[in-house]
């Protein structure tokens, strides 16, 4: 069976250059939020930005594929430091605000938020 694949949100937004622009907006929001900023503090800000760009690429359906196992392993140290639903909700809120600020249409924002939500259990190690 062959179906014309629907364009991903990632492609509709403009691919890699769009992610490069979005990551700075998103990173500023999480760093400025004292409830979650300690999870994002990194001596190497470029490395941290690269991680977040990979995250944005993933939730928009772009060419980054994390397995549930990767998400669990990557966030396990943060879960030990107290990462919980309230932090996940805050990050999701900043993701939504970032997309809206960049003028992404509501149906596409909803699509991205659904993908992000599907990672909740793995991120929080449940």
């Amino acid at each position: 069976m062959s179906v014309m694949a629907e364009k991903s949100v990632y492609e509709q937004l403009g691919g890699e250059p769009a992610m490069a622009a979005a990551v700075e907006v998103f990173y500023r929001k999480v760093l400025a939020d004292e409830h979650i900023s300690h999870f994002f503090e990194d001596v190497d800000m470029e490395r941290q930005a690269a991680k977040q760009k990979a995250f944005l690429t993933m939730v928009t359906g772009g060419p980054v594929h994390y397995s549930g196992k990767d998400m669990r392993a990557g966030h396990a140290p943060l879960v030990k430091r107290g990462l919980n639903d309230s932090h996940f909700d805050a990050v999701a809120g900043h993701l939504k605000a970032t997309l809206e600020e960049l003028g992404v249409a509501a149906p596409l924002v909803a699509k991205v938020m659904t993908i992000a939500e599907s990672a909740r259990a793995d991120v929080l190690g449940r």
Partner: peptide, 11 residues
């Protein structure tokens, strides 16, 4: 660096 990034400078 963090303060200037938050103030709008690009990384």
């Amino acid at each position: 660096r963090k303060k200037l990034f938050l103030a709008g400078l690009s990384l």
